[in-house]
Structure formats: structure tokens, C-alpha cells
Amino acid sequence: MSEPKPRILYCRCAFAQTVPKATKDEVLDQLCESGESFDTVSDLCEMSARKDPRITELLEGDEPVQIVACYHRAVKWLFHSAGVDFPEDRVEVLNMREESAEEICKKVLK
């Protein structure tokens, strides 16, 4: 049986210029050009800070998830700080602060 296709979660980091704009725009453009379903959030940090109930849904289920945001350590503990377990074994974090849009899209839109 083939591996299930990972769900895609993209963080826009809208409250700050933390992530290079060119990278986040290019990744979003490519997602929009693809035929994939995906989830996007305006700012994971903000959701974590206010313990937005939707943050618990984002990692629900048992399928793999690819999160396109920033550093793995930051993303993992942001979920934790919102009271959500971070299932390391099925979550991959792609870092728009370090990786290029091209590298990220290659992994996400295979």
C-alpha cells in the first residue's frame, strides 16, 4: 500500500516580517497553482498565543502533515504552548527562513 499523501499546512506569518516575503509569496503562489487541498493560517504564533481552538484541529487524525512555517523547534513548542501534542513521527516542518521556496515546493508538491 502506498503512503498516504501528507496534508499541507502553510503559515503566512502575517504579523511580522520574520519570514522572507519573497519566499512566503512564492510558496503560496505554487500551492495555489497546484491542484492540492491545503490549510493556511495567518499566523501560528498568534493562534498559539490566544489558544485559538482551531490549532488543535490542525494536527488531528493520524495522517502525515507537512507544516510550512519556520524553525522546527519554534513550531513544535508553539503547538505545545497552545496545549496541543506535537506528533513528531508524522509531522515534517519546512522552514521558510532557511530553505528556498523551490526546495520547499519540491518536497510538498511532489
Binding site: R12, A14, L28, L31, E36, S37, D39, T40, S42, M47
Partner: peptide, 19 residues
């Protein structure tokens, strides 16, 4: 892009169903 930059979460659902 515009909705995200205004603070909304947006989910795109295609034929394959998504989340």
C-alpha cells in the same frame, strides 16, 4: 493571500476532499 494578510485562516478544498 489577501484574506491571510487580514488575519483569516483559509482552507482550500479540491476534488480530493482535503482535511
Amino acid at each position: 493571500r489577501t484574506l491571510l494578510d487580514k488575519g483569516y485562516s483559509v482552507t482550500r478544498v479540491t476534488e480530493d476532499g482535503g482535511r
